[in-house]
Amino acid sequence: MAVLALTGFSSGCGHESRSDSSSSSGSSGRDAHGSGTSAGGSVSGTHLSQPTHRSTPTASPSSEPARPLKDGTAVLVSCASTDDPFAIVDIRNPNARDAVFTVKISFKDEHGFTMIDTRDQVSVPAKDTTTYRRAMAGAGPLDEIARCEVDPRATADR
């Protein structure tokens, strides 16, 4: 004698979902309400008449679009000279993530003529400052450099 115990009741047929809707043979053991029973009489699933509570899915951090990066700042520390052929610039990243910034440096002579303009990409860790050294190369003699100008806005690459 086989005993069958049910843990819930169903008053309607239109609210169930089936994981195997392709099986239509009598061997699946599904009754009209979607409760599955095997040949041995045990219950393989239950269908309750209580309402189903569904949680609202929330976006995971990785699926959210990244916030646009804020531009950083660039400050000239020292200009290139015959003693040190590098312009030194501090680049600050105000963002909460690592970013790459475009830094613009101009090398000028005593008359204000631009000997060379540079645009370099510099990686800066989140909420940090990086010191960048830019060689003055190919623009003429180092002794002709009178000053360097740095764009104070380090543009974040988006």
Rank of each mutant, 00 (worst) to 15 (best):
D120T: 10
P51D: 03
T129G: 06
A66Y: 00
S22I: 02
E149P: 01
A5G: 12
P125C: 04
S81M: 00
S44Q: 13
P68I: 03
D120F: 03
D120Y: 07
S24C: 09
G112R: 06
L48C: 12
I105T: 09
C79W: 02
G140E: 01
V3Q: 14
A80H: 05
S25K: 10
Y132D: 00
G36A: 14
A80Q: 00
M1G: 08
I116N: 04
I88L: 10
G138E: 02
R92C: 05
K108T: 11
S27N: 09
A74H: 00
D71N: 15
V3P: 00
R18A: 10
G26K: 13
R92F: 04
E144V: 11
S60K: 01
T7M: 10
G72M: 05
E110L: 13
E16Q: 09
A135I: 14
A146M: 02
E149C: 03
S42V: 12
D20G: 09
V75W: 05
V75Y: 01
S24F: 09
T82M: 10
V150C: 01
V124S: 00
S55P: 04
R18Y: 06
P57N: 05
T102Y: 07
G112L: 04
R134F: 10
T130G: 00
H15K: 08
A87V: 05
R134W: 11
G8Y: 13
G138M: 05
G138C: 09
S38W: 08
D83A: 15
I91Q: 03
D31R: 06
G14I: 03
K108F: 06
M1S: 15
E64N: 03
P57E: 06
V150L: 07
G29P: 01
R97G: 07
I88W: 08
T7V: 13
D98I: 06
K70S: 10
D84P: 02
S55D: 11
A39L: 09
T56F: 12
V122P: 01
T155F: 10
S106R: 14
R54S: 15
V122S: 04
A2G: 07
M136H: 04
V103C: 00
P68Y: 05
P57D: 01
E110S: 12
T118E: 02
I116S: 13
R119I: 04
S62H: 11
P141D: 14
S28K: 09
F101G: 02
A2L: 11
P152N: 04
S28R: 15
R30D: 06
G112K: 01
A74Q: 02
L4T: 14
S44H: 14
A5Q: 12
Q50D: 10
R54C: 14
C79F: 02
D117C: 06
A66M: 07
P68C: 05
H53M: 15
T155K: 13
S81C: 05
R147V: 10
L69R: 05
T102L: 14
D84Y: 07
M115N: 02
